[in-house]
């Protein structure tokens, strides 16, 4: 069985790249190959100029790894014990170690639990500990495999701003695997999507939205329940996709302007409120995943059409222009 197949990419120094895909797509497999603990059956990998399998130990000194659902910390001992051990493991000079620990303690707010055994830490605290552990030795590259999994919003925000800071201040290259697309939108200039072991997208986050034929949605609140809205001819493709009492949902191509549509609706109906929803990146990604899993090359159908979401012909294969 092939976990990953024909995946090819290059990441430049200092980039923050999101690596996303459904469960079992091959994300962790890729990361394990990049760290040298898995040997690819075929192909060629270089990380920081090194062959990950043959030069695994030399590489391990230049990279940091966080597997979000795993920990490398000593469960029964205070967090500082694990950090001190890493100082010896990576032979970090004392001054540099103190400097880094001070900085990370400040950025990740570790002060309150540095001396508490890891088993007593909350998930968010433990994750901040694991992040520190991965970065104490100033790695040039850090792999983060689901670093925000299971975290509350405050901890997620702390992890994200920390990563942004480390990337900005130190130029650390970041490869971020996640299911949380907020992570991607807030941190990554570039995103790679893997599905069914294949790379199905590699480009900007905005480009990802344009990749499928995305739609925006107008949510119209009328003064009273009414039959389906009478929509103008412009923009083409606009249609009512849902009616719930006085509220109606109007989908239209993301590339079209909302203005004429709003003007026409407010002219013809008594409207209380209107709001506009951007194409949901989760939905966009879901379509890419389905497309990649089915390996189908048919054209994309529209996003947001409940009747079409399970159509097996859907795919992210269309290279549309920018959505906005």
């Amino acid at each position: 069985m092939r976990a990953v197949d024909r995946i090819s990419f290059r990441i430049d120094s200092g980039e923050v790249v999101g690596y996303i895909g459904p469960n079992g797509a091959g994300k962790s497999t890729t990361v394990k190959m990049l760290t040298g603990i898995l040997t690819p059956s075929a192909g060629h990998i270089r990380v920081a100029g090194l062959n990950p399998v043959r030069q695994r130990v030399a590489l391990a000194r230049r990279i940091g790894v966080v597997f979000g659902q795993r920990t490398g910390l000593w469960w029964d001992l205070p967090l500082t014990d694990s950090f001190e051990l890493l100082r010896h493991l990576h032979r970090i000079p004392s001054a540099r170690y103190r400097e880094n620990l001070e900085l990370f303690t400040e950025l990740l707010d570790l002060g309150a639990f540095l001396h508490i055994p890891v088993r007593q830490l909350s998930l968010g605290q433990r994750m901040r500990g694991d992040l520190t552990a991965a970065l104490l030795h100033d790695p040039r590259i850090v792999y983060l495999d689901e670093p925000t999994i299971g975290l509350d919003v405050v901890s997620k925000a702390a992890v994200r701003s920390f990563l942004a800071e480390i990337n900005r201040e130190r130029g650390t290259t970041v490869l971020l695997t996640t299911h949380d697309l907020d992570d991607i939108e807030r941190l990554c200039g570039r995103v790679m999507v893997i599905a069914g072991g294949r790379l199905v997208y590699d480009g900007s986050v905005d480009g990802l939205r344009g990749r499928v034929n995305a739609e925006r949605t107008l949510v119209v609140d009328l003064a009273a329940p009414a039959p389906r809205l009478d929509l103008p001819a412009e923009p083409p493709g606009a249609r009512v996709i849902r009616v719930d009492g006085p509220r109606q949902w109007v989908a239209f191509p993301a590339t079209a302007s909302a203005a004429p549509l709003i003007t026409a609706i407010t002219a013809r109906h008594e409207v209380v409120d209107i709001s506009l929803r951007e194409p949901d990146i989760d939905e966009v990604v879901r379509r890419l995943y389905l497309g990649g899993l089915r390996s189908s090359a048919a054209a994309a159908s529209s996003v947001g059409d409940p009747s079409g979401t399970d159509d097996p012909s859907e795919t992210g294969g269309r290279s549309a222009t920018s959505a906005k």
Binding site: K32, T35, G36, I37, R56, V57, A58, A60, R61, V65, F67, R70, T71, G72, L89, H90
Partner: peptide
């Protein structure tokens, strides 16, 4: 996996 990637 965490243990295997340590430089030791």
């Amino acid at each position: 996996a965490m243990d295997l990637q340590r430089p030791a």
